[in-house]
């Protein structure tokens, strides 16, 4: 399958995502410049981490207006798989493709560290290789990762099974101490109501080989490939 990795000025996880998808996953990938609009032939779009356009106003606030985002929105509406990581999650929320917003970390500092993530559902295109309750070890690196939505939205996310990852302790227990940024209900990742758009603050592309500290990120990337192949075989069948 072919991944499209979007590059805004200020994006810095583009090369890491490209490397993970091609060298570690053995799939094809191509970069899409923020002024590009042609996403034909792409099976999954990655909106990577970074500081798009500097993020001086608010993370993702400018990026949502870029030409490529029109294509991302169309691609998502047509059911295409989209994964927003870190700044990508912020941009997808700003663009209205995911509910809620990412606010400054509650302690007001940037955080780069490994965290434990509890998989809340395996019934998504991004977690089919995991099991509910699995604990993944994944790095975070952000200053504005505190997930916020109002109670009604949070309740509906819970009810619809849209909460995909929660910050937790190594044993899977969700505690105040395991929440690195003050996210409401310890939310680290959610999917859209249709299930084809995932946003997550942690960086799966940074943990795709043991030499870098772990391979749990591959579970998420492989789930995408598996979902794509399943969908393709259903289509052709």
């Amino acid at each position: 399958m072919e991944f499209g990795v979007i590059v805004f000025p200020g994006t810095w996880s583009d090369a890491d995502c490209f490397h993970a998808v091609t060298d570690r996953l053995g799939q094809r990938a191509r970069f899409l410049w923020h002024k590009d609009t042609d996403v034909s032939g792409i099976d999954c779009l990655i909106v990577p981490g970074g500081f798009s356009y500097g993020d001086y106003l608010r993370a993702g606030a400018i990026a949502r207006f870029s030409p490529v985002m029109r294509s991302v929105e169309r691609f998502a509406r047509n059911g295409g798989l989209v994964i927003g990581i870190c700044n990508g999650f912020q941009i997808l929320c700003e663009a209205g493709l995911l509910p809620g917003a990412l606010m400054r970390n509650d302690h007001l500092q940037f955080r780069c560290q490994w965290v434990s993530l509890r998989v809340e559902t395996e019934r998504t295109s991004f977690t089919s290789q995991c099991r509910r309750g699995d604990v993944l070890s994944i790095p975070i690196s952000h200053g504005e990762g505190s997930y916020y939505a109002d109670d009604a939205t949070l309740d509906s996310l819970e009810a619809n099974g849209q909460i995909v990852f929660r910050y937790c302790e190594e044993d899977g227990e969700v505690t105040p101490a395991s929440n690195p940024n003050g996210s409401r209900r310890a939310i680290a990742g959610i999917v859209s109501a249709e299930g084809n758009v995932l946003g997550m603050m942690p960086h799966p592309e940074r943990c795709c080989e043991d030499l870098m500290g772990g391979e749990d990120g591959l579970l998420i990337l492989r789930s995408i490939v598996e979902s794509h192949h399943r969908a393709s075989s259903v289509d052709s069948g």
Binding site: A15, H19, C112, S141, M212
Partner: peptide, 14 residues
């Protein structure tokens, strides 16, 4: 100090 610095980006940090 260093948890405030991104030390993983570029995915080469062993």
């Amino acid at each position: 100090i260093f948890r405030q610095y991104d030390h993983h980006v570029q995915t080469n940090t062993v």
